[in-house]
Design a protein around this nucleic acid. Structure first.
Length: 351
DNA sequence: CGACTTTGACCAGCGC
DNA sequence: GCGCTGGTCAAAGTCG
């Protein structure tokens, strides 16, 4: 697979699309693998995809150097003798990358920053993890209606029913439960619930099959923001926390992290995602212990790129924030090895 | 007292 | 159809 790079203001959105594309491509493989091997439990077999993605990011990319963005080659240390990988390109300043298939199939450009919410029919969207931590990969699935809408409908119908506690439950009867796009990432952390700048309310906890650790369910406390996240500890490695975000924040982070390494709303990043500038990527709280040291330790704390888009997978942002040498180091030592795909959910059967 | 967590019960989806 | 599991609800409890 090769990617073409073109300069474009919407590059990061396109990168997202690539990421989505990768996920979609890999989804089927993983499904098959899982069904052939160990059943259907979620996260049951993260490694195949993990490695697959790793290799994808290491894939050589076809770069249109003449058209690439200003300083991009220098920044990445790319020269005529070096073929950048997708990983490298993800660190580049705005540029466009599209897999050949996508170039043909997806004539429709991704939404401009001005309308950076993904179209409803866009089957795969990355949401806003705004997570402080490192490694991560996600998957997304799509299903669309909001809980709020369902709730309203359900309440209407069941008003006369006796138990108030049951009023909200029939809401799902007439409609298949639909989900927001989601993605998951893994983090080495001693704390389960990572501070990502948003405020969450825990609304449930469940024991997880084949895992001694429970899964916790959180909802964004902001009214009208239906973002949820699930947090669970990996049964394989108790030091790893798997966080799955679902949905997209409709508001800026209410909590700007203390000593947030001062990432101001990036003016020059506005070209990429600026119109959605209210979405400031919360920066990690480094007082917590969950921050893998290698992420930022040797690289500049972070470029403004880190805050460009709340919908951009954190692990990519962090990759982006590292200069190329660090990038190759990371590639060899850490991030991708930690990547775990989220559960690969079936596509909605009905549109 | 409000915000948040805990926890048992309930519901829906899925596989057998 | 049945049972299992994930996801959610909401009352009760806790905390600041």
């Amino acid at each position: 697979m090769h990617y073409r790079c073109l300069p474009n203001e919407d590059s990061l959105l396109l990168i997202k699309s690539i990421y989505i594309y990768i996920e979609m491509e890999k989804k089927e493989e993983v499904k098959t693998e899982n069904s052939n091997s160990m059943g259907n439990s979620t996260f049951s077999d993260p490694m195949p995809t993990s490695f697959a993605l790793s290799s994808i990011f290491d894939m050589p990319c076809e770069v249109d150097k003449s058209a690439s963005s200003l300083g991009f080659m220098d920044l990445l240390g790319i020269n005529d003798n070096y073929t950048p990988s997708l990983f490298d390109l993800l660190q580049a300043p705005p540029l466009m990358m599209m897999p050949p298939q996508q170039q043909q199939q997806q004539h429709q450009p991704l939404p401009s920053p001005a309308s950076s919410t993904i179209p409803a029919d866009s089957s795969e969207v990355l949401n806003t993890p705004a997570t402080p931590n490192s490694s991560s990969i996600s998957s997304s699935s799509t299903e669309a209606a909001t809980d709020e809408q369902n709730k309203a409908a359900g309440e209407e119908d069941e008003q006369d029913q006796e138990k108030t506690k049951k009023q909200l439950k029939p809401k799902k009867k007439n409609q298949k439960r639909q989900r927001e796009p989601r993605f998951a990432f893994m983090t080495k952390s001693e704390v389960d619930h990572l501070d990502d700048g948003f405020r969450w309310r825990k609304y449930g906890q469940k024991a997880v099959k084949n895992s001694p650790y429970p899964r916790s369910y959180y909802r964004c406390t902001t009214a009208a923001c239906g973002v949820k996240k699930r947090v669970e500890r990996s049964s394989d490695d108790s030091s790893v926390v798997v966080t799955t975000y679902e949905g997209q924040h409709t508001h800026p982070s209410p909590v700007m992290p203390r000593g947030s390494i001062g990432i101001p709303p990036p003016e020059h990043a506005a070209g990429s995602f600026g119109s959605n500038s209210s979405f400031i990527m919360p920066q990690p709280h480094y007082h917590q212990q969950h921050q893998p040291h290698y992420l930022y330790s040797n690289s500049s704390p972070s470029l403004n790129l880190a805050s460009i888009n709340s919908s951009f997978p954190t692990f990519l942002q962090e990759r982006r924030s590292c200069p190329s040498p660090a990038a190759s180091w990371l590639r060899d030592n850490g991030l991708l090895q930690d990547i775990v795909p989220s559960q690969m959910r079936k596509e909605p059967k009905e549109e």
